[in-house]
């Protein structure tokens, strides 16, 4: 195990903006290395300042292209950027094919842009927890904006995108993408809904559908009403690219709203609340399994459940009773 001092040196370098250190610290998170706790403890105080933008949408919706444009615009405004692009791991081999950089490689010679591809893996503490940590590391690097990109498939990824302060959901005309997104609950978390490929047939109908679905939701006064922004991220001619400036100002407007309305405090509170819960769950499970290790009890419990003599709820109650709750019960009693 690396000692505190080495970690401290790494963190100091990170704070000075060293991308190699950011990259290595992220690997510690990804590998769920033991040093990670120490590192995150030291990093944590230096985070919480960046604007976090989540971008989600199905494969082929053009997310990477949009991000490519966003990076360019934000860089023109002098802002530094971090990108975390999450793609699924193969459930069979555990490997992953991470291809988002294909679209983003033109930024890889820009010091103001840090891009990290991340496989969803089968994180013990869940993808959401690791993503929290990765974002914190990029924040500590001093980036102004952190963009998190996911496919938005499954609850896990929806949770990930929920970390973001500003959540952008990307959909495309036709193929019923917007219906899928509605069903998946993605629209409920969207602050901005982008209809990309808005030059395709059916775009107008699609925008109407999206607006209609928003209009039946009631918003309180002063509450943020999600914007629907049509974009064309890829076009035959550069001048046919549309909606990028609108998207940038949409994101900035939402950020401004968060600041003015004090919603930012709530979002930040929720972020820490979620983080705390996840770490608790994860660590608790680790402690308990560690305690059971080598005792043969875990196997016995599982067998007793399989034989119908017991059930998981009773087992958990029993274990928690003997390990942890005793103290509280004593106090309550």
């Amino acid at each position: 195990m690396k000692n505190e001092k080495i970690i401290n040196e790494m963190v100091q370098k990170l704070l000075s903006g060293d991308r190699r250190m950011a990259a290595r610290l992220i690997t510690l998170v990804e590998d769920e290395a033991e040093e990670n706790h120490e590192a995150m403890k030291q990093i944590y105080p230096h985070t919480g300042k960046a604007a976090i933008v989540g971008i989600t949408g199905s494969a082929g919706s053009g997310k990477s292209c949009l991000i490519d444009h966003l990076i360019r615009k934000f860089r023109q405004q002098g802002k530094t950027i971090g990108v975390v692009a999450v793609d699924p791991s193969s459930p069979f081999s555990g490997g992953a094919f991470l291809g988002d950089r294909i679209r983003l490689q033109s930024h890889s010679s820009d010091d103001g842009v840090y891009i990290r591809s991340m496989a969803s893996r089968g994180y013990l503490g869940g993808l959401t927890r690791s993503t929290h940590d990765v974002i914190r590391i990029i924040e500590a690097m001093g980036r102004d904006i952190v963009i998190v990109e996911t496919l938005g498939a499954g609850q896990d990824e929806i949770d990930v995108i929920h970390i973001a302060q500003t959540c952008v959901v990307v959909t495309t005309p036709g193929m019923g993408d917007e219906i899928q997104a509605l069903k998946a609950g993605l629209m409920e978390i969207a602050d901005i809904i982008v209809l990309n490929k808005a030059d395709l047939d059916g775009a107008n109908t699609c925008i109407k559908n999206l607006q209609a679905s928003l209009s039946i939701t009631s918003f309180e006064e002063g509450e943020w009403v999600p914007q629907v922004i049509p974009t064309v991220a890829v076009a035959s001619k550069p001048e046919d690219i549309r909606g990028i400036d609108e998207l940038v100002s949409g994101i900035l407007e939402h950020q401004k709203y968060l600041h003015i309305s004090n919603a930012l405090e709530r979002v930040k509170f929720e972020r820490v609340e979620q983080e705390l819960g996840l770490i608790f769950k994860d660590e608790l499970q680790k402690i308990i399994f560690k305690g059971l290790k080598g005792t043969g009890k875990k196997k016995k419990y599982i067998k007793s459940i399989l034989e119908g003599k017991n059930d998981p709820y009773s087992v958990v109650e029993e274990i928690l009773g003997s390990y942890l709750i005793t103290d509280g019960e004593r106090r309550n009693g």
């Binding site: 291809g99 294909i102 679209r103 001619k237």
Partner: peptide, 12 residues
């Protein structure tokens, strides 16, 4: 300059 450049979609 006029037409822009093409990059392929990630294929998986």
């Amino acid at each position: 300059e006029v037409f822009g450049e093409f990059r392929e979609e990630s294929i998986y």
